[in-house]
Amino acid sequence: MLTGWQSVAIFQIEGEVIAMTKYTSNLLRGNTDMLLLGLIDEFKTTHGYQIIKEVEKRSNGLFKLKEGTIYPVLRKLESEGLLKGEWKATSSGPERRCYSITQKGREVLCHRRASWENFSNAINLVFKTGEV
């Protein structure tokens, strides 16, 4: 369902993995949808700014989203019925658009997580076999 149109939030990779930037960036691009769905599922309802901060924090600053580019991904997920967005008033400052995951989004996330785990397990198994 999420294939065909690549996730487009652009990551900037920092730290010691500069030589792997392109490779890692491609890996991340293919999984941005899953990362965002996972975070939104965990927070129940959240907004773009908080997601960016959380991604950066949890990756120890390794994944830095170009901030304007997260909204196309959120909108695409919303148009596919995986997220639901609604405007909420804040105590100070302008209204925020907050996103929550839908039942369909949860099912897709579950499927994507299982695929990711199978894939990474398979990679680890191949490397392990090579060591033996």
């Binding site: 487009v8 652009i10 170009k66 304007g68 580019t69 909204y71 196309p72 991904v73 909108r75 148009s79």
Partner: peptide, 14 residues
């Protein structure tokens, strides 16, 4: 990010 890039991605998403 560049306004051109953000606008293009938003257009493609919506």
């Amino acid at each position: 990010g560049a306004p051109e890039e953000v606008a293009q991605l938003l257009y493609e998403a919506c």
